[in-house]
């Protein structure tokens, strides 16, 4: 169950439309290393995770990724909404406009639609957390390549915020992995002393 706050995690107020940039930023919405894939990955892996700390980490970060999804959708919307068709065409966003107009559709920058093939749930806690560490690094890398492609501070500031969140999430998944490693290495041999009523039976025999 979730509760929703009608507020973005970080404010987004883009004054200058830039449809070309919108069709690149869309990759963090529905692309291979995007926020939708991240959210579904963590929220799905949660069910087979072990230790309360690691389960809570997946739940919390999976939830935060939904807030990031909303931020990215807002950015794409604001970059597209006041652009003229001529601006859309000349900026190279014509292909996107043909299929989705000024809407926000979960796809990669390349145009590949979102697919669950972007993520994995192996059901093994070490495997899943190791994938999550990689996913955070890939998302950080994507944000850096996006930051390289714009000078608009209205776009840069939210992108930098989201990039730093990936760094923090990496640390948290790393700590969750440590907890899980320790838990899986704990000895699980329990020695139960034989109860007295069983012992007396042995003596009587």
């Amino acid at each position: 169950m979730w509760s929703y706050d009608k507020i973005l995690q970080y404010p987004i107020k883009i004054k200058t439309p830039n449809p070309g940039l919108a069709t690149k930023i869309i990759s963090q919405y529905g692309g291979p290393d995007g926020e939708l894939a991240a959210s579904l990955r963590y929220l799905s892996q949660r069910f087979s995770m072990v230790t309360p700390e690691a389960i809570a980490t997946l739940n919390d970060i999976g939830t935060e990724e939904l807030a990031h999804l909303e931020m990215i959708g807002t950015m794409v919307h604001q970059l597209m909404k006041n652009a003229t068709v001529e601006e859309i065409e000349s900026s190279g966003a014509g292909a996107y406009y043909t299929d989705h107009g000024r809407g926000v559709y979960p796809q990669a920058a390349s145009g590949t639609p979102f697919t669950a093939a972007f993520l994995q749930v192996k059901g093994d806690p070490i495997v899943d957390l190791t994938e999550d560490l990689a996913a955070e690094q890939k998302a950080r890398g994507t944000y850096e390549w996006l930051i390289n492609q714009t000078d608009d501070p209205d776009v840069l500031e939210p992108l930098k915020f989201l990039r730093e969140r990936e760094v923090v999430h990496y640390q948290r998944f790393g700590e969750a992995l440590r907890k899980v490693q320790d838990y899986l290495q704990e000895p699980r041999l329990f020695i139960m002393p034989k109860p007295d009523f069983l012992r007396s039976n042995e003596l009587n025999r």
Partner: peptide, 19 residues
Amino acid sequence: SLAAGTAFPELFSPYNRKD
């Protein structure tokens, strides 16, 4: 914290386009 993207100074590692 909102500006940095983290509450923790030791985790704050800004990117400065050293592509």
